[in-house]
Design a protein around this nucleic acid. Structure first.
Lengths: 141, 141
DNA sequence: CTAGGTGCAAAGTCTTTGCATGATA
DNA sequence: TATCATGCAAAGACTTTGCACCTAG
């Protein structure tokens, strides 16, 4: 995986740096991490890594196809490794819990859109709603 | 519609103000508008409406069930009227155009999730991807 | 040695908040 | 006239950018 990083960077004439390795590893370890969470995680191991480096690195890693991001809240995006199988995120607004499903969950949707001339980005999808349990056990805000 | 606004506000012990009427109308007229776009639109009619009023009002209108928001880009959210039929947004990353589909597009998804104890929020969904023949199809809705 | 990368600080975008003033019911 | 709403300005969360210095290849 870090081998993969080195190779893909080389292919683009980019350099392998400790920061890039650490940030990729952080994304792999934390499974759905915001840039800030990645920063904190990396800083537990090495001090003085800068937030701007995290943003720039996540962008590079995404271009290299090693990480992906999605929006699981109305706030900061979350990044995950592409080593994980492609998956769809389903988020409960009430309990904030995130479920992951395989691409087959949205196969009919992908097909319907394909038939209409649109290629869907499955890995970016975030479905919001509410766990049935949350709805019946919690009271409204 | 504005009658509806007055009534729903009254039910909550809230007040009908010109700003609230204008902001709701702006959302209805512009079909997918960011808070900033709403602000600009309202200011074309009345000067000195404040951005914070727009944010606060959109929040109130959403609580009253008169508007909804979704995320059609990595930037500001867009609001639309609930007078429109519930619809799913499909966004091309390349040409930025937005297609709208009826809820039947995601019926299988809704069912699959329901069977798994999850109630999906259809109107909030934004599907990203790319027009197969990008730039020549789809009209903005 | 040299292009690319990092840290730092400042600026930018979008949104929220505190408070005094103003308007609605 | 009692609240509730608004405008304003300041602060906040998140992200981007410019620049000097540093480092991998």
């Amino acid at each position: 995986m870090s081998d993969d990083l080195a190779q893909r960077l080389r292919e683009q004439g980019l350099r392998l740096t400790p920061q890039r390795q650490l940030i990729l590893r952080a994304v792999e370890e934390l499974r759905h991490a915001t840039p800030d969470e990645v920063l904190c995680h990396v800083r537990e191991q090495v001090s003085s890594v800068n937030a701007s480096t995290v943003y720039r690195t996540l962008e590079v890693l995404e271009e290299l196809g090693l990480v992906r991001h999605t929006h699981l809240s109305d706030r900061a995006p979350t990044y995950h490794s592409t080593l994980e199988h492609e998956h769809v995120h389903v988020v409960c607004r009430r309990c904030q819990k995130v479920r992951s499903y395989g691409p087959e969950l949205v196969a009919p949707l992908v097909e319907a859109l394909a038939a209409d001339g649109f290629t869907m980005d499955v890995g970016h999808l975030a479905v919001f709603g509410q766990c049935t349990d949350c709805g019946t056990t919690s009271e409204q805000t």
